[in-house]
């Protein structure tokens, strides 16, 4: 069990399996299947990104890339050839990983990360989190 009491502004916590089964839950996330299902479907995306792309950040500035068919090929230079949208099988996908996802609403946020093939989700109060982190 992870100690989430120390997390600033935490209002609830849950650990879910990759298939969405709730393993444990506390606070406002107690037995909240809606949240667990939604977090699970959020997890079932694949978005490999190459932040260390060789092309300069201004490569796209010439206005070539505007969603037309030919423009697609232009940017693929900076993208893994195998990484066709959802496939996630390119070199980038293999070496790259997102560590954490934050879904921030006006007053509350949900932070999730994956550890030991289990999804940890914590619900946090925005104002309280900000106040604590400033101290």
């Amino acid at each position: 069990m992870v100690h989430v009491e120390k997390v600033p502004g935490q209002k609830g916590y849950m650990v879910i399996q990759e298939d969405g089964t709730i393993l444990s839950s506390t606070g406002e996330l107690s037995s909240n299947e809606l949240t667990s299902n939604q977090i699970t479907s959020l997890m079932s995306h694949s978005l490999p990104v190459d932040f260390n792309t060789s092309s300069s950040p201004t490569a796209g500035l010439n206005g070539d890339v505007n969603g037309s068919g030919e423009a697609g090929g232009h940017l693929n230079v900076s993208f893994s050839p195998g990484g066709s949208s959802n496939g996630g099988s390119g070199d980038v996908a293999r070496g790259f990983k997102w560590n954490r996802i934050t879904v921030q609403f006006k007053d509350e946020s949900y932070v999730a990360c994956l550890s030991n093939r289990r999804i940890h989700v914590v619900k946090r109060d925005n104002a309280e989190s900000a106040a604590t982190s400033q101290q």
Partner: peptide, 11 residues
């Protein structure tokens, strides 16, 4: 609609 820099239309 448009993608610039490291962003790709694939995404």
């Amino acid at each position: 609609l448009s993608a610039k820099g490291i962003a790709s239309p694939n995404m």
